[in-house]
Design a protein around this nucleic acid. Structure first.
Lengths: 206, 206
DNA sequence: TGTACATCAGTGAACGCGCGTTCACTGATGTAC
DNA sequence: TGTACATCAGTGAACGCGCGTTCACTGATGTAC
């Protein structure tokens, strides 16, 4: 298959068919999301960036919700990867701690994606890829917290309470930081994470 | 001053001047917010409910942001009251625990208000009443956690770390519950809080 | 007590906005024979 | 190897949407004298 990348980038005319529009739209959407924030995301702007008409995305994602769900699923995969690599060589409390730092780091580093991941009203939460990616992220945390026993049960299972506690603490910290509790300027969340997060994690008993 | 309440309620014609439009708009806005959720809030719909023209709110709140900020400030006051009354007769860890339960209860019971309180993009975060009400809620928690020493420093102060840890955990738990982590049906958040929250709070060390 | 007048608190029409989606269409591709 | 044809992946114009805000206005209130 001949791949005709976007003429916006190359300057060359591209043929009628894009050739790899799906990934191009994902990339454009991520850029739009990061720049405008989740509340101002626009499908039309995404199409504009990808150099196609406003109706083109419908062929690949159905509607805006479909595209955003794909984005959120990808973000959960990335979060899972970050948790995994942060804790790879560690065990027990050390692993949990490293995951907590990585979790907050992800949230602060990819704010718009992190916002999107939890915005039910914009997503198709029953989408299989989305659900699986979200589930995996939790399982990684559960396994770190409970060792061999962890990683197989749902967050609703009473046995998962220690993992939920860890998750809640880092999730809440990230949200408070992003939502301006530690200051409204852009650097405040990172500053708070650096100064406060280690001490905060000391109050998590796992 | 003669107060002419809204003709929508009384059925009687009301005079040109409403008489108590500001509180009426607040009440209407709370109703709209609760019914539509924060993402679908509409100033026009609020004016419609209050029985006035779409431009009337501008006289009392400037713009939509002004009205939403007043709503968020009121919600923070209410949250503070809930925290206070939940822990009134308690001390130490018991008080913190009771506040945690009250915090999550508030979030789940007043979902739309809770969502709004943290939505920077819709609020004027520098508004004095909003800032003071938010600050008070944190101070109450800090005082419960640190006793006499608490309640006077900002969340960014390293000394506040234990209170931030408690706050983060309950805030994160509430957000995860509201955002569908424990199931997508409406009853799931409350069910999760009932079954999981006590065990989760056991992992908070204060 | 009456009157003039400034101020307050509403009206309602109009504006401009960008959005997501639909629709009939067409250029390009790939496959069956 | 050529050809017919189904299918795929785009176009671009149009639709309808409800929104927040602005504007010139006017009815009602309250106050100074």
């Amino acid at each position: 298959m001949v791949i005709n990348q976007n003429s916006v980038k190359t300057g060359l005319p591209r043929s009628y068919h894009h050739g790899a529009l799906r990934p191009a739209l994902i990339a454009a959407a991520e850029a739009v999301l990061a720049e405008t924030g989740v509340d101002r995301f626009s499908l039309r702007e995404t199409a504009r960036r990808a150099g196609v008409s406003a109706s083109a995305p419908a062929h690949h994602f159905g509607d805006a919700r479909g595209l955003l769900t794909a984005l959120a699923a990808a973000a959960f995969v990335e979060l899972g990867d970050a948790l995994e690599s942060a804790s790879r060589t560690l065990q027990g409390a050390q692993a949990v701690r490293a995951m907590g730092v990585a979790y907050v780091g992800f949230a602060l580093g990819q704010r718009a994606s992190f916002d999107l991941m939890w915005r039910e009203s914009l997503l198709d939460c029953s989408n299989a890829e989305y659900a699986a990616a979200a589930r995996r992220a939790f399982s990684l945390l559960d396994r770190a917290v409970r060792g061999e026993a962890g990683g197989t049960c749902a967050p609703t299972d009473p046995a998962a309470a220690p993992a939920v506690a860890a998750w809640a603490m880092v999730h809440g910290f990230a949200r408070l930081a992003l939502d301006g509790t530690f200051g409204l300027d852009n650097a405040a969340p990172q500053h708070a994470a650096d100064m406060l997060l280690p001490a905060v994690l000391d109050h998590l008993e796992v």
